[in-house]
Amino acid sequence: MEKEKEFYKRLEKKGVSRRDFMKYCTFLTATMGLSSSFVPKVAEVFAAQAQRPPVIWLHFAECTGCSEALLRSMYPWIDQLLLEVISVEYHETIMAAAGHQAEENLHNAVKKYNGKFICVVEGAVATKYNGGYGKIGGKTFLDIAKDVCSKAAAVICMGTCSAYGGVQAAKPNPGGYKGVGDALGIKTLNIPGCPPNPINFVGTVVNYLLLGKLPALDDLGRPLFAYGKSIHDQCPRRSHFENGEFVTEFGSEEASMGYCLYKVGCKGPETFNNCPIVKFNDGTSWPVEAGHPCIGCSEPDFWDKMSPFYEEM
């Protein structure tokens, strides 16, 4: 009891109220598919750390949308993630260092935490012309990935580009872009999406901190807690599908009735993700709720395989 008091005192010192704290731990635990008995353990992960787990975040061919998605984290807030939960040793967008000092940070962190850091990759890797289509400071993405990923405790691919190649790998793919796993011939944990829901990233990291291992994955490297079921199977508009009630044109009476979007191209039946359950931006909405068909953005090669986006599968 005394210990618990201490614990909340320490939290408050860090600017976190007990109520907020339990709220996000509960939300996370539920998203991870763990029973509510895990909530206190999840809470411990956030509070009792002597050393924050080091994270090295690499940017390759990408739009930084996945980093932006991470900034939207509300469970916990991004400032708590950065200052109290993990230690982001290298991240092009948010780190304060620049130039030589930035590269020094990467080099030093890889050396200091060899075999112990989590490597997060955002973006695809150019493989054609010796990786010539993608370089940072004269070094190719391919070389950087080979060097850093091989020394990580785990490689997490944040977003469809690092997981499976994404838009860069769509035809005609002039630079020979590939996902990290493909480019290096290694196994990666994939959190696909364009961009993914940050809760699925945080849930994965917490799972790792809590249980000392990565969560269970499907054969595409995706955590089952988030990607175990299809959009279609979890869709609140599913009954309309069963009843044959379809939207055939945007702006129609059927669209304003919230009918099934299958006939205007929804890829929900072939897409595995938890969007309908968790939703985005503090549970505000998700594409089907906004009347837009799912474009299958978390599936491999979705630009080629899921398009045309507005035509029935």
Partner: peptide, 22 residues
């Protein structure tokens, strides 16, 4: 997210208007 499903990468904007009529 209210009129565009999510952020980043909104999904409600289509040629001819916007889908989030509901």
């Amino acid at each position: 997210a209210i009129f565009g499903a999510k952020n980043p990468h909104l999904q409600s904007l289509v040629v001819g208007g916007i889908t989030s009529v509901k």
